[in-house]
Amino acid sequence: GKKITDLRVIDLKSELKRRNLDITGVKTVLISRLKQAIEEEGGDPDNIEL
């Protein structure tokens, strides 16, 4: 897996889109939004599978 902070903006957006989440904002905003979603799913933001 990869750390969420290692993802490119395009990867962050595709992961957010897959979860029907907002894809607007700067990279730090996208990271925190995706991180929260992954944690709510019970996942580990430091080890995500794309």
Rank of each mutant, 00 (worst) to 15 (best):
E15D: 00
D46W: 13
E39H: 15
I38Q: 05
V26L: 11
D6F: 04
S32M: 15
V26I: 13
L21W: 03
T24R: 15
L30Y: 01
L30I: 04
R19W: 00
R19Q: 03
K27R: 06
T28H: 14
T5Y: 12
T24E: 12
K13G: 00
K13L: 10
D46M: 14
L30G: 04
T28D: 08
N47D: 09
E40C: 11
L16E: 03
R8L: 11
N47W: 06
V26P: 14
L30S: 03
R33C: 00
V26K: 08
I48R: 05
V9P: 03
T28A: 13
L34N: 06
I31N: 04
I23L: 12
N20V: 02
L50V: 12
D22P: 10
V29C: 13
S14G: 12
D44V: 05
P45Q: 04
G1A: 12
G1E: 14
L21Y: 07
D22H: 02
V9T: 15
V9R: 08
E40G: 14
V9G: 05
K17I: 13
D11T: 04
V9C: 13
L7T: 03
K2Y: 05
L12S: 01
G43C: 10
I31S: 10
L21R: 07
S14W: 11
L21C: 05
T24A: 13
R33A: 05
E41F: 00
D46R: 08
D6Q: 12
R19I: 00
I23A: 15
E49C: 08
K35F: 07
K27Q: 12
I4K: 03
I10D: 01
I48V: 13
L21K: 10
V26N: 15
K17S: 13
L16D: 05
S32C: 06
L34P: 04
Q36D: 10
K27A: 09
V29L: 11
G42P: 03
V26M: 12
R33E: 01
D46E: 13
D46I: 08
K17E: 14
K27V: 05
K17D: 13
L50Q: 11
E40P: 00
V26G: 14
G43M: 11
S32D: 11
G43K: 10
K2S: 08
T28V: 13
G43T: 07
D11W: 00
K13R: 10
I48P: 08
E15F: 02
L16T: 01
E40D: 05
E40N: 13
E40S: 14
I31H: 07
E40T: 13
L34F: 03
G43H: 10
I10G: 12
K2C: 11
D44Q: 07
L12D: 02
I10R: 14
G43D: 08
K17Y: 12
L50T: 11
K35G: 06
K2P: 04
L7K: 05
R33G: 03
L30M: 12
K17L: 05
I10K: 09
N47G: 06
N47S: 10
R19S: 01
K27M: 07
K13P: 00
K27N: 07
P45F: 08
K13Q: 13
D22G: 08
L12M: 05
D6A: 09
K27G: 09
D22W: 02
T5S: 14
L30K: 06
L7Q: 10
K2N: 07
V9Q: 05
L21F: 05
R8D: 15
D11C: 01
S14F: 11
G43R: 09
P45S: 10
P45C: 11
K2Q: 09
S14P: 01
N20P: 00
L30F: 00
L12E: 03
E41N: 08
E39S: 13
E15K: 00
N47F: 12
Q36M: 14
I23P: 13
K3W: 00
T5K: 12
K17R: 14
N20H: 04
I31Y: 12
G42Y: 03
V9Y: 07
L12F: 02
R8E: 09
N20F: 08
S14C: 07
R33K: 09
